[in-house]
Write a protein that binds this DNA or RNA. Structure first.
Lengths: 106, 106
DNA sequence: AGGAAAGATTCATATATACGAATATTCATA
DNA sequence: TATGAATATTCGTATATATGAATCTTTCCT
């Protein structure tokens, strides 16, 4: 049955339900970064960044490469970025509709 | 800050983290359907379908139209389907990779 | 070998989500 | 207006998730 596919699909989508993970994904958009860089850019405790990276890694959203003491993370598949972009477009469209609506209320 | 956008984005993505909701979305792919039709097609209790439809409605993923005692639901924005499709492609690619990997193990 | 930097893991707790069961609302029709 | 069909809501509970704090592992450098 398709049921199994829907379950897996839902599972993957859980990766994108955390604002910090989305920010990390966004930070990786133009290329790989170390955990440290991500930690500083996101302004989030290192352990927490690492926790989120673990989720991203386990779900094949990112891949890693070690260089000495550093570990570089990068987006595994460009389609993931495309999907994120589409969602964001939907979001922004909705926001601008709400804005119009609000303006009409005045 | 972008932080607010990431939060809203994460919020919207929560809609897609439930297999039954994904199935409902899939059932609405080729046009509007009543709650009853969705209930039968998905093989899920009516109240539960209704709960999921509420989530979809509140997040502007679907819109409704009343016709007598029936309420027709449909997808609000085609981009949502596109995003779902992209995610599913990513998923299927991953599956076929895992399959290859498994075959190599023999 | 020892220490420091980079990153990961574990655990406890607070919060969110899903679902069944029961109940309520809305509309059509007799 | 009473009844039934279609749909929605509420509530309790079980399960999942996020995060801080503490701890561990790996690697580099001297």
């Amino acid at each position: 049955m398709d049921k199994k596919i829907f379950e897996m699909h839902a599972e993957i989508c859980k990766v994108f339900t955390n604002p910090k993970r989305l920010e990390i994904i966004s930070l990786l958009r133009d290329g790989e970064k170390t955990v440290n860089e991500l930690t500083e850019l996101a302004g989030v405790p290192q352990a927490n960044v690492s926790q989120h990276l673990t989720v991203l890694r386990q779900n094949n959203v990112v891949t890693t490469r070690r260089n000495g003491a550093n570990i570089y993370y990068k987006i595994a598949n460009q389609k993931i970025l495309q999907a994120c972009d589409l969602m964001r477009e939907v979001l922004l469209e909705k926001l601008s509709e709400n804005e119009k609506l609000a303006r009409r209320m005045l």
